[in-house]
Design a protein around this nucleic acid. Sequence first.
DNA 1: GACCATATGTCAGCATGTTGTCATTGTCCT
DNA 2: AGGACAATGACAACATGCTGACATATGGTC
Lengths: 116, 116
Amino acid sequence: MTESLGLTHARWKVIGAIALSNNGLTVPGIARVLGQSRQAVQRITDVMMEDGLLEYHKNLKHKRSVLVMLSQRGKEVYNTLRELQDPWAIDATEDIPVEELEAALRLVRRLIKKFN
Amino acid sequence: MTESLGLTHARWKVIGAIALSNNGLTVPGIARVLGQSRQAVQRITDVMMEDGLLEYHKNLKHKRSVLVMLSQRGKEVYNTLRELQDPWAIDATEDIPVEELEAALRLVRRLIKKFN
DNA sequence: GACCATATGTCAGCATGTTGTCATTGTCCT
DNA sequence: AGGACAATGACAACATGCTGACATATGGTC
């Protein structure tokens, strides 16, 4: 699904995390949202910035830690992929009772919480 | 959990797949069980063989494709890790109704099947 | 204001996984 | 038997992820 847009799943995760934030996120902030190491995120955001998907903005709160935001093209990619993903997700689950899906989600969250 | 035995999660997956087979598996066979590429499995089994966890046995059905089996030490590691993992799994789920766990498992399998 | 613990940027080494390619081996159909 | 197609081994390029280490920045405490 990401391939048709020249993305990979890792880059899609990053775009998604930033899109859900309002004023941009720092690299370690993205890492915390995604639950992975800041180093892994840093490497990906650097490449995505060069590719024109992200923009680094001055962070008033920190001298070196920039705020990562979606560029115009990043926003377009986000919207385009959402238009592919949403129908896919609906198609995948429309014949499953909502209560079943929610119960499974509650269970997964419960286990995640237990392991934190 | 795997670290205390000098393993990694990837090697543990391979050991588990072989342990559940009766007469050994070929490398592509392990890959099919795990649902991943044979190349990735090949690389790992080669190292595990050098480390003495696995043994390659002549395969009567194929001139070059060997049968991978657990060495004595591989079996010991398997049993030791099971003794760590089983109590962990029980502890993680003992306060959750069995029906909830089974329902979530059915849902996951249903989705996997849908995407095949 | 000095000091210490924490957060961040950066670089490196390693473990896994994927895909692609090519030669060799197996299978099956005619 | 012969030939086409699939399976396997081997090698390579690439994308991710983790941890460790070291220098710099922040923030809270005395």
